[in-house]
């Protein structure tokens, strides 16, 4: 449904996105995840036909977003980063205007507008001027604006920004209910949003897509780095070599580094994938005469995946730059 190939955008001499590529199957929700300034909005704008790409192609429903811009615009709903609202119009008036603009036939105008209003829970506000609405309601009106003409593809740039927790849940449910009939791509920098709403995630960092996968697989990918964390009293150096020699332990990390006895320290263990050295670890520590205060499994969250993917990327480029200098 949405195919993006080697998309590049250069502003002046700064590349904003580089070789971005992904596909979204019909009926799927793709989360476009990245820190602020990673190029999410730029990618969304290119997909919506608002900005032309410097090179590369993007196709929606088989039409090139630049060559067949009008054909694409008929088939997309787009929520820009800033809600595009006319403050002097009522909610209903605005949605009628957008529906007409998007080419909805006069016969089905009322039906489509009513259904969008219902879907976005705006029924009681439909005669209210947009100027008088709170930020959360305005955001809902902008989402209604993106779905009012029932487009096959929906592009949402940060759909839950500025909403309170209850509204966020409502919007997420709304987005989920749209999947199936609609293909959705949504950008966000909020991780739980992706694991809760999206079928697949593309992680973008400094303008490059660093991973595309399902949220579950991304988490599983880092499962190997799950480990143990222990808080001990005493000098953990005594136990270090014993711990390292245990079967199933791949690395041992102690912090703070030079610990005096009588102070508490943290030991982090990364096990060999598949190994469960939990009880040997505890036994070893106690044999070494250390006081064990806390021991827990650390499981990677999507945050860790995200941080690892986005920070390794910058560390690598940082090294490159250092080498070049």
């Amino acid at each position: 449904m949405i195919e993006v190939e080697r998309l590049n955008k250069v502003f002046g001499s700064t590349p904003v996105i580089q070789d971005v590529a992904f596909t979204v199957e019909a009926g799927e929700i793709l989360g476009f995840l990245g820190p602020n300034g990673a190029g999410k909005t730029t990618t969304m704008r290119i997909l919506a036909g608002y900005l032309p790409a410097t090179s590369g192609t993007a196709r929606i429903a088989g039409y090139d977003v630049h060559e067949d811009s009008l054909a694409v615009r008929h088939r997309i709903g787009y929520l820009p980063e800033n809600p595009p609202l006319y403050l002097d119009m009522t909610v209903e008036g605005f949605l009628y205007f957008v529906a007409r603009l998007k080419g909805v036939a006069a016969g089905s105008l009322a039906e489509k507008v009513t259904s969008a209003i219902k879907r976005c829970n705006l029924t009681e506000k439909r005669k209210v001027l947009i100027r008088k609405l709170s930020k959360g309601y305005r955001q809902r009106v902008s989402i209604a604006q993106a779905i009012v003409h029932d487009p096959p593809a929906i592009i949402l740039d940060e759909p839950t920004i500025g909403l309170d927790p209850r509204q966020i849940i409502e919007v997420r449910n709304l987005i989920k209910s749209l999947a199936g009939e609609h293909t959705i791509i949504l950008s966000t920098h909020i991780l739980p949003e992706v694991s809760m709403t999206c079928d697949r995630v593309a992680i973008i960092s400094s303008g490059k897509v660093v991973a595309t996968n399902t949220p579950e697989n991304l988490r599983a990918q880092l499962e190997s780095t799950s480990g143990y964390e222990m808080e001990v009293e005493g000098n953990p150096r005594k136990a270090q070599s014993m711990l390292e020699n245990l079967r199933g332990v791949s690395s041992v990390e102690i912090s703070p580094n030079g610990t005096q006895s009588g102070e508490r320290a943290f030991i982090r263990i990364i096990p060999v994938p598949g190994a469960e050295p939990g009880h040997e670890l505890a036994a070893t520590l106690i044999d070494a005469g250390l006081g064990l205060y806390e021991m827990r499994r650390t499981r990677p969250t999507l945050e860790d995946v995200f941080l690892e993917l986005t920070t390794t990327e910058s560390a690598v480029t940082g090294e490159k730059q250092a080498m070049e200098e």
């Binding site: 608002y50 009008l70 787009y78 820009p80 595009p84 609202l85 403050l87 603009l101 604006q145």
Partner: peptide
């Protein structure tokens, strides 16, 4: 200023 130009520019209107 309001950003509504983005709406117009991404609608099927010339």
């Amino acid at each position: 200023k309001r950003g509504t130009l983005e709406l117009l520019a991404t609608s099927p209107v010339t």
